[in-house]
Design a protein around this nucleic acid. Structure first.
Lengths: 207, 207
DNA sequence: GTCTATACTGTGATAGAC
DNA sequence: GTCTATCACAGTATAGAC
């Protein structure tokens, strides 16, 4: 019974195959959403057979749950590391920079998350109301301190975070639209975006 | 044969029922995406029977197509009306304002669109590369003129539009997350957002 | 024009051979 | 541990009564 995907005592092969499945599932779930994805697609994508996948995981839902579980940790890490600093504007812009890098390097994770939220976060609501809210409130308080100290302009911390999240993740989630509108100059799209967002948030935050 | 949903010569009842179906379908498609939605759900939501729905439309795909077709017209209308003006900053902020109002008043339309883009825009790609790109390029040129004339700060017009789209639509598409993070102060969430975005884009655009 | 009953297909999951 | 074969069910769509 290898089905406990979180079990420690796995052989190397077992670990490799579960990773192989999760990798394929991330690709598929990010592209088609939970309901739109089929185990068949994951099987084809991973090069394994359907029953073999169901040997390693207790079903479609279980695979999705593992992916979501891993997601939030890595997803919130940049915000975690937003810390007090003598130069708050640089600190926030560095956060914007990291978020944009994640949108570029992990677009599938971004879309997996977006799909989930967009459809009402049925499998993630508790995480949002618990850990996410706690972390957000903590960092919002930090930002509010900077406002009160006159180090940055008087903005609403929560809505600042919303603006950072939305503008950066847009380049992953709405990638198709971005490329359709920009034509075929994808090469430096992220560089231009980086400069634009840096400019925007510096202008906003300047006291 | 009433199946041609676009047919003109419809009775009052036929028009009412097709509207009833489209209204229900918008609700369902926006919540669950195309694949995640079933005709059963649309039937329940609309109070009609499943075969009755398939009498009025040629299938699930056809209903979705009608919704998407209507969407782009209304969706791009605010950008259409962005016009030359002696006070470009007010003009752009008015556009932001209209977009945010649409996110508040038509969240289902926003989510229908987001679902479609997120999953690669399989049924909308031509519209994006054609009409959307044309309109965007036209308005980007207008904004570039304002930049060249020194009326607003030196920003990239396309990325400015991306930032406007993402920040405003975020309040519709990621509504669940916004409410989870803010707690239960939804009452004035859109007012606060409005003030925040106005502040942000004015700071960005000030020459 | 609308309903009931049903055919057909795709999908999640299991049984049992190897 | 992995595969082939298959079940059970949900979902789209149609046929035909009314």
């Amino acid at each position: 019974m290898a089905r406990a995907a979180a079990t420690k005592g796995q052989t190397r092969i077992q670990r490799e195959k579960t990773e192989q499945i999760l990798e394929a599932a991330l690709e598929v779930f990010a592209s088609y959403g939970f309901r739109g994805s089929t185990i068949d697609q994951i099987a084809t994508q991973s090069g394994l057979s359907k029953p073999n996948i169901l040997y390693y995981f207790d079903g479609k839902e279980a695979i999705h749950a593992v992916l979501l579980g891993r997601l939030l940790d890595t997803w919130l890490e940049p915000l975690q590391s937003l810390s007090d600093s003598s130069t708050p504007i640089d600190e926030i812009c560095a956060y914007v920079h990291r978020k944009l890098e994640m949108a570029r390097d992990f677009p599938r994770e971004s879309r997996l998350f977006a799909n989930e939220i967009l459809q009402g976060a049925p499998r993630l609501l508790n995480e949002l109301q618990g850990p996410l809210k706690a972390l957000t409130d903590e960092k919002a308080a930090l930002i509010q301190n900077w406002v009160d100290a006159g180090k940055i302009s008087a903005i609403d911390p929560h809505h600042l975070l919303f603006s950072i999240w939305s503008t950066t993740q847009h380049y992953a989630d709405f990638d198709v639209q971005v490329r359709a509108v920009l034509g075929s100059c994808e090469g430096d799209c992220f560089q231009t975006a980086q400069a634009h967002l840096d400019h925007m948030f510096r202008a906003l935050l300047k006291p």
